[in-house]
Design a protein around this nucleic acid. Structure first.
Length: 378
RNA sequence: GGCCCCGUCGUCUAGUGGCCUAGGACGCGGCCCUUUCAAGGCUGAGAUCGCGGGUUCGAAUCCCGCCGGGGCUACCA
């Protein structure tokens, strides 16, 4: 079982062992009493450590208790793969709680027990756990287990405000969000790898396999790194542009439920350089399933559309043929291409921004396109 | 408060005593390309290397102090 809630017996057994060996003891103090101790210490400007009153003189008339670890004191040393030799003074650490009064373990206890029982060799986690390591090491030692062979504490990913990412305050901590918006897993891995680590070369785009090959703990940063959406966006765009059309079409499917596969496939080349994330495709192609409002065009614009409509009537409905026909209209007009293209774009999509006009038209069934065009000519 | 970690362009970073008048990337500005928007190409601005003292012929790089930020310090994980 991997859930802590399904392994409570395991923690209870380990706690019982420590209790039996006198390496832990029951504490009957109430939260209020502990709070009072803490305030007292603060008032006297002395660092707080649990008083050990329940070790020295436990009350007889109480039943609810927690299990506290009897901190042996002394120096705790270990090697961190990123930061080197670490030494902590355990005399500064008060007896901490292993089992809560509800019978569940604290993280500080469950974590080292899990690591030992699961035979974890490398403990790689965020820097917020650096100061927790001595706590956990003391437990591993007290339990008589072998210590994990290596620890590595990675720099924190910080929010824009410079504090540790938290689910409450920072939406970017929520992984589901990225999938929903169409950030590619490849891009996420790529970006996250670059946050707090660098290869020592100018390469920025990495596949997972490449990362496995070049990653090294020696090159990971010691300072926290701020999460930067802009850079993620760029990397995601790079991955989108580099992806082959069929694969991109496949990934686009959940974001373009209104369209059939063939249409998505035909749209891909036009979409590719215009998306920062997959969800961007929807607004670009919205006109395919939603009739745009009819635009207000001046007389000249209407003339341009009229000329285009005539030229398109007998044309094969593919981007090259459409392009050719439209360019003839543009040349005949003696005006810039935009004078013709923009009014068409506006009538067909309702927007000033769209893929190139030949693609924009070709993606729409010819009848629908021609109907939208003729509606402004009436 | 105590303990721990950290401090180079706005951001991610290169840099381990001279190659640094501090390099790259994202973002930002300009130009080019152009059918709008992107993409692409070129180009520019942007960091007195947190501050102050040392050491040294020479320091972003070594030492000390200070300041600043973050983390841990819970019957959260």
């Amino acid at each position: 079982p991997y859930r802590q809630s399904e392994r409570v017996d395991l923690y209870r057994q380990h706690a019982a062992k420590l209790l039996a060996e006198g390496k832990a003891y029951k504490c009957f103090c109430t939260p209020e009493e502990l709070e009072a101790e803490r305030r007292q210490a603060q008032a006297e400007k002395r660092p707080y450590k649990y008083s050990r009153r329940c070790l020295i003189d436990p009350p007889k008339d109480r039943i609810e208790f927690t299990v506290r670890f009897k901190v042996p004191g002394g120096e705790i040393k270990f090697t961190d793969m990123i930061r080197g030799e670490m030494t902590f003074d355990a005399d500064l650490i008060g007896d901490f709680i292993l089992m809560k009064s509800d019978g569940f373990p604290t993280y500080q206890f469950a974590s080292p027990v899990d690591d030992a029982v699961m035979k974890i060799t490398h403990v790689i986690r965020g820097e917020e756990h650096l100061s927790n390591t001595p706590y956990q090491l003391m437990i591993v030692d007290a339990l008589g287990y072998e210590r994990p062979s290596a620890y590595a504490h990675m720099p924190l990913i910080l929010a824009k405000d410079g504090t540790k990412l938290s689910k409450r305050k920072h939406p970017e901590a929520n992984l589901v969000l990225y999938r929903e918006q169409g950030y590619l897993p490849e891009a996420m891995i790529n970006y996250l790898a670059l946050l707090g680590w660098n290869p020592g070369t100018v390469q920025e785009i990495f596949t997972f396999d490449e990362l496995v090959r070049v990653f090294s703990f020696e090159r990971v940063q010691h300072a926290g790194a701020r999460f930067d959406w802009e850079k993620l966006n760029w990397i995601n765009g790079e991955w989108i542009r580099a992806m082959d059309d069929a694969e991109l079409a496949r990934r686009l499917r959940p974001f373009l439920k209104q369209l059939d596969e063939a249409t998505i496939m035909r749209a891909v080349p036009a979409l590719k350089t215009r998306m920062v994330k997959l969800s961007d495709a929807a607004s670009l192609l919205e006109y395919l399933w939603t009739d745009p409002p009819s635009p207000t065009l001046d007389a000249e614009a209407i003339e341009r559309v009229r000329a285009a409509a005539a030229a398109l009537r007998d044309v094969a409905w593919e981007p090259p043929a459409i392009h050719e026909a439209l360019m003839r209209v543009v040349e005949a007009s003696g005006l810039g291409p935009n004078k013709t293209f923009m009014p068409i774009r506006l009538t067909v999509t309702g927007k000033k921004i769209s893929p190139p006009i030949d693609y924009t038209l070709a993606l729409l069934p010819k009848e629908v396109a021609m109907q939208r065009i003729s509606s402004v000519l009436a």
